[in-house]
Protein backbone atom coordinates (compact mmCIF):
# COMPACT_ATOMS: atom_id res chain seq x y z
CA UNK A 1 0.00 0.00 0.00
CA UNK A 2 1.20 3.53 -0.75
CA UNK A 3 -0.18 7.02 -0.30
CA UNK A 4 -1.29 7.31 -3.92
CA UNK A 5 -3.30 4.11 -3.79
CA UNK A 6 -4.75 5.03 -0.38
CA UNK A 7 -5.82 8.46 -1.68
CA UNK A 8 -7.21 6.78 -4.77
CA UNK A 9 -9.29 4.35 -2.73
CA UNK A 10 -10.48 7.18 -0.45
CA UNK A 11 -11.43 9.22 -3.52
CA UNK A 12 -13.36 6.25 -4.86
CA UNK A 13 -15.03 5.80 -1.46
CA UNK A 14 -15.88 9.52 -1.37
CA UNK A 15 -17.42 9.33 -4.85
CA UNK A 16 -19.72 6.48 -3.81
CA UNK A 17 -20.70 8.24 -0.57
CA UNK A 18 -21.36 11.53 -2.41
CA UNK A 19 -23.60 9.66 -4.86
CA UNK A 20 -25.53 7.93 -2.09
CA UNK A 21 -25.91 11.20 -0.16
CA UNK A 22 -27.18 12.97 -3.26
CA UNK A 23 -29.81 10.29 -3.81
CA UNK A 24 -30.82 9.95 -0.19
CA UNK A 25 -30.97 13.71 0.63
CA UNK A 26 -32.69 14.82 -2.57
CA UNK A 27 -34.66 11.54 -2.75
CA UNK A 28 -34.00 11.72 -6.46
CA UNK A 29 -31.74 10.02 -9.00
CA UNK A 30 -32.21 12.77 -11.60
CA UNK A 31 -29.14 13.14 -13.80
CA UNK A 32 -27.68 9.80 -12.70
CA UNK A 33 -27.11 7.12 -15.33
CA UNK A 34 -28.45 3.76 -14.15
CA UNK A 35 -26.55 2.10 -17.00
CA UNK A 36 -23.21 3.31 -15.69
CA UNK A 37 -24.10 1.98 -12.25
CA UNK A 38 -24.99 -1.39 -13.79
CA UNK A 39 -21.62 -1.41 -15.56
CA UNK A 40 -19.86 -0.59 -12.28
CA UNK A 41 -21.75 -3.41 -10.57
CA UNK A 42 -20.54 -5.75 -13.33
CA UNK A 43 -16.98 -4.46 -12.89
CA UNK A 44 -16.98 -5.05 -9.12
CA UNK A 45 -18.69 -8.43 -9.35
CA UNK A 46 -16.24 -9.64 -12.01
CA UNK A 47 -13.20 -8.24 -10.24
CA UNK A 48 -14.01 -9.37 -6.72
CA UNK A 49 -14.87 -13.00 -7.46
CA UNK A 50 -11.78 -13.88 -5.43
CA UNK A 51 -13.32 -12.09 -2.42
CA UNK A 52 -13.74 -15.42 -0.61
CA UNK A 53 -10.84 -17.34 -2.10
CA UNK A 54 -7.83 -15.06 -1.73
CA UNK A 55 -7.41 -12.93 1.40
CA UNK A 56 -5.14 -9.90 0.93
CA UNK A 57 -5.91 -7.80 4.04
CA UNK A 58 -8.81 -6.67 6.22
CA UNK A 59 -8.75 -3.33 4.44
CA UNK A 60 -8.91 -4.99 1.02
CA UNK A 61 -11.81 -7.24 1.99
CA UNK A 62 -13.78 -4.47 3.71
CA UNK A 63 -13.41 -2.12 0.75
CA UNK A 64 -14.48 -4.84 -1.70
CA UNK A 65 -17.56 -5.66 0.38
CA UNK A 66 -18.40 -1.95 0.69
CA UNK A 67 -18.00 -1.28 -3.04
CA UNK A 68 -20.12 -4.24 -4.05
CA UNK A 69 -22.77 -3.53 -1.44
CA UNK A 70 -23.14 0.16 -2.27
CA UNK A 71 -23.20 -0.25 -6.04
CA UNK A 72 -26.08 -2.73 -5.81
CA UNK A 73 -27.82 -0.45 -3.32
CA UNK A 74 -27.41 2.42 -5.80
CA UNK A 75 -29.01 0.29 -8.52
CA UNK A 76 -31.88 -0.51 -6.14
CA UNK A 77 -32.37 3.24 -5.51
CA UNK A 78 -32.34 4.06 -9.22
CA UNK A 79 -34.53 1.28 -10.55
CA UNK A 80 -36.82 0.73 -7.61
CA UNK A 81 -37.00 3.17 -4.71
CA UNK A 82 -36.60 6.41 -6.67
CA UNK A 83 -37.64 4.94 -10.01
CA UNK A 84 -40.06 7.82 -10.64
CA UNK A 85 -37.14 10.27 -10.77
CA UNK A 86 -35.00 8.12 -13.06
CA UNK A 87 -34.56 9.85 -16.42
CA UNK A 88 -34.45 6.80 -18.70
CA UNK A 89 -35.01 8.88 -21.85
CA UNK A 90 -31.66 10.57 -21.44
CA UNK A 91 -29.94 7.42 -20.19
CA UNK A 92 -29.92 5.94 -23.66
CA UNK A 93 -26.30 4.86 -24.21
CA UNK A 94 -26.12 1.45 -25.95
CA UNK A 95 -24.06 -0.47 -23.37
CA UNK A 96 -23.89 -3.52 -25.65
CA UNK A 97 -21.51 -1.44 -27.78
CA UNK A 98 -19.20 -1.45 -24.74
CA UNK A 99 -19.73 -4.95 -23.33
CA UNK A 100 -19.14 -6.88 -26.57
CA UNK A 101 -15.84 -5.26 -27.68
CA UNK A 102 -14.54 -5.24 -24.10
CA UNK A 103 -15.50 -8.90 -23.68
CA UNK A 104 -13.75 -9.78 -26.95
CA UNK A 105 -10.65 -7.80 -26.04
CA UNK A 106 -10.44 -9.54 -22.65
CA UNK A 107 -10.28 -12.86 -24.50
CA UNK A 108 -7.57 -11.65 -26.86
CA UNK A 109 -5.37 -9.52 -24.63
CA UNK A 110 -4.77 -10.85 -21.13
CA UNK A 111 -1.96 -12.06 -18.88
CA UNK A 112 -3.10 -15.69 -18.83
CA UNK A 113 -5.82 -17.55 -20.73
CA UNK A 114 -7.57 -18.77 -17.57
CA UNK A 115 -11.22 -18.07 -16.59
CA UNK A 116 -10.55 -15.96 -13.49
CA UNK A 117 -7.82 -14.04 -15.29
CA UNK A 118 -10.00 -13.30 -18.32
CA UNK A 119 -12.86 -12.19 -16.07
CA UNK A 120 -10.47 -9.95 -14.14
CA UNK A 121 -9.18 -8.47 -17.42
CA UNK A 122 -12.77 -7.96 -18.58
CA UNK A 123 -13.48 -6.00 -15.38
CA UNK A 124 -10.40 -3.82 -15.91
CA UNK A 125 -11.32 -3.00 -19.51
CA UNK A 126 -14.99 -2.47 -18.66
CA UNK A 127 -14.19 -0.11 -15.81
CA UNK A 128 -12.26 2.15 -18.18
CA UNK A 129 -15.41 2.81 -20.25
CA UNK A 130 -18.12 2.31 -17.59
CA UNK A 131 -18.54 6.06 -17.08
CA UNK A 132 -19.44 6.69 -20.74
CA UNK A 133 -23.23 6.32 -20.28
CA UNK A 134 -23.06 8.88 -17.46
CA UNK A 135 -20.99 11.36 -19.48
CA UNK A 136 -23.26 10.73 -22.46
CA UNK A 137 -26.32 11.46 -20.33
CA UNK A 138 -24.82 14.75 -19.12
CA UNK A 139 -24.06 15.75 -22.71
CA UNK A 140 -27.68 14.98 -23.62
CA UNK A 141 -29.28 16.84 -20.72
CA UNK A 142 -26.70 19.61 -21.25
CA UNK A 143 -26.09 20.06 -17.54
CA UNK A 144 -25.10 18.30 -14.32
CA UNK A 145 -26.10 19.07 -10.73
CA UNK A 146 -23.18 20.36 -8.70
CA UNK A 147 -23.29 17.33 -6.39
CA UNK A 148 -23.13 15.05 -9.46
CA UNK A 149 -20.09 17.01 -10.64
CA UNK A 150 -18.38 16.37 -7.29
CA UNK A 151 -19.22 12.68 -7.64
CA UNK A 152 -17.64 12.55 -11.11
CA UNK A 153 -14.59 14.55 -10.00
CA UNK A 154 -13.93 12.14 -7.13
CA UNK A 155 -14.53 9.13 -9.39
CA UNK A 156 -12.20 10.45 -12.08
CA UNK A 157 -9.53 11.35 -9.53
CA UNK A 158 -9.48 7.81 -8.11
CA UNK A 159 -8.06 6.22 -11.26
CA UNK A 160 -5.75 9.21 -11.89
CA UNK A 161 -4.32 8.59 -8.41
CA UNK A 162 -3.99 4.90 -9.27
CA UNK A 163 -1.78 5.92 -12.21
CA UNK A 164 0.52 7.63 -9.69
CA UNK A 165 0.34 4.48 -7.57
CA UNK A 166 1.51 2.36 -10.53
CA UNK A 167 4.40 4.75 -11.24
CA UNK A 168 5.40 4.55 -7.57
CA UNK A 169 5.12 0.73 -7.50
CA UNK A 170 7.17 0.45 -10.69
CA UNK A 171 10.09 2.32 -9.12
CA UNK A 172 9.63 1.10 -5.56
CA UNK A 173 8.71 -2.58 -6.14
CA UNK A 174 9.40 -3.23 -9.81
CA UNK A 175 5.67 -4.03 -10.08
CA UNK A 176 4.11 -3.28 -13.44
CA UNK A 177 0.81 -4.40 -14.94
CA UNK A 178 0.46 -3.10 -18.50
CA UNK A 179 -3.22 -4.03 -18.83
CA UNK A 180 -4.26 -2.13 -15.70
CA UNK A 181 -2.08 0.86 -16.62
CA UNK A 182 -3.32 1.18 -20.21
CA UNK A 183 -6.97 0.83 -19.12
CA UNK A 184 -6.34 3.33 -16.32
CA UNK A 185 -4.91 5.86 -18.77
CA UNK A 186 -7.91 5.46 -21.09
CA UNK A 187 -10.29 5.79 -18.13
CA UNK A 188 -8.61 8.98 -16.89
CA UNK A 189 -8.48 10.51 -20.38
CA UNK A 190 -12.26 10.06 -20.70
CA UNK A 191 -12.65 12.39 -17.70
CA UNK A 192 -10.32 15.09 -19.02
CA UNK A 193 -12.92 17.31 -20.62
CA UNK A 194 -15.09 16.90 -17.53
CA UNK A 195 -12.09 17.81 -15.32
CA UNK A 196 -11.64 20.94 -17.44
CA UNK A 197 -15.30 21.91 -16.99
CA UNK A 198 -15.15 21.09 -13.28
CA UNK A 199 -12.07 23.20 -12.62
CA UNK A 200 -13.13 26.15 -14.76
CA UNK A 201 -16.77 26.18 -13.61
CA UNK A 202 -17.70 24.23 -10.51
CA UNK A 203 -14.65 25.49 -8.60
CA UNK A 204 -15.97 29.03 -9.27
CA UNK A 205 -19.40 28.19 -7.98
CA UNK A 206 -21.02 27.84 -11.38
CA UNK A 207 -23.02 24.87 -12.61
CA UNK A 208 -21.77 22.69 -15.43
CA UNK A 209 -23.89 23.38 -18.47
CA UNK A 210 -22.69 22.02 -21.78
CA UNK A 211 -23.77 23.69 -24.99
CA UNK A 212 -26.65 21.27 -25.58
Amino acid sequence: MNIFRLCGDMSHLAAIIILLLKMWKTRSVAGISGKSQILFATVFTARYLDLFTSFISIYNTCMKVFFIGTVYFTIYLIYMKFKATYDSNHDSFRVEFLIVPVGGLAFLVNHEFAPLEIIWTFSIYLESVAILPQLFMISKTGEAETITSHYLFALGSYRALYLCNWIYRYYAEGFFDLIAVVAGVVQTILYCDFFYLYITKVMKGKKISLPA
Binding site: R5, D50, I56, N60, M63, K64, H111, W120, F175, F176
Partner: peptide, 10 residues
Amino acid sequence: VEKVKRHDEL
Protein backbone atom coordinates in the same frame (compact mmCIF):
# COMPACT_ATOMS: atom_id res chain seq x y z
CA VAL B 1 5.08 -10.81 -11.78
CA GLU B 2 3.71 -13.34 -9.30
CA LYS B 3 -0.03 -13.81 -9.53
CA VAL B 4 -1.28 -12.73 -6.09
CA LYS B 5 0.69 -9.50 -6.19
CA ARG B 6 -0.92 -8.59 -9.53
CA HIS B 7 -4.41 -8.72 -8.00
CA ASP B 8 -3.75 -7.07 -4.69
CA GLU B 9 -5.44 -3.84 -5.76
CA LEU B 10 -9.10 -2.91 -5.60
